[in-house]
Amino acid sequence: MATTATAPTTKSWGGGKSPFNVEYGKVMMWYFLMSDAFTFGAFLISYGTIRFSTNGWPDPNEVFKSFPFAPEGMNAPLVFVSIMTFILIISSVTMVLAVQAGHNMDKKGVVKNLIWTIIGGIAFLSCQAWEWNHLHHEGAWWGSNPFLNHDGTASSTNFTNYFFTITGFHGFHVFSGVIINIIMLIMAVTNKFEERGHYLMIEKAGLYWHFVDLVWVFVFTCFYLI
């Protein structure tokens, strides 16, 4: 066994030690997220293919220019969606802090940061609900597109179909993330993790939550910016 001790980095698969050095659940969460990344990737690439095969496309600054409680006809492109983006980034930061508090067996820190993360998730979902409702009132829905292309030509329903499908699928992920975080919060408050002696489950919930934030980075860019 002396050889393994002298050259530990080259003998990962030689037996006697864990080649990944993480527990089973975390490896499986990573593989689940990888498959989920392919699902979202397929959606976004399909959207890109259709967009590349069409002559015109609606201008996002024309479609997403509204803001809650603003007077009718106000022109504020990118403002509302940038608030949504920052909400999700900040909730991701509080999730990292919850995971770190878990490493230090700091129950109070875990509970506090999980509550902030859940509030961020609910705030994001509320923003999205408002936006969907607003667009629906303007006549946009699956199979119905009231907007013209940027160059003034007639637009197809591809734009609204992809927008509602992809942001809907992402919103459903945010919703599941909030549910998972609420379960983590209940388990932390009821001392389930203290009894186990570790907070490793928070780490897996954290991975899922960061993935949701990661997908929003792509959705935000593909639909609102370019």
């Binding site: 990962s12 080649p19 930061v93 991975l207 960061h210 993935f211 934030d213 990661l214 792509f218």
Partner: peptide, 18 residues
């Protein structure tokens, strides 16, 4: 995307195999 995956999801500090 790199900063979220590498630091928030901690992938940069994992083993190279993973």
């Amino acid at each position: 995307a790199f900063y979220i995956v590498a630091y928030f999801m901690h992938l940069k500090h994992e083993m190279k195999n993973l």
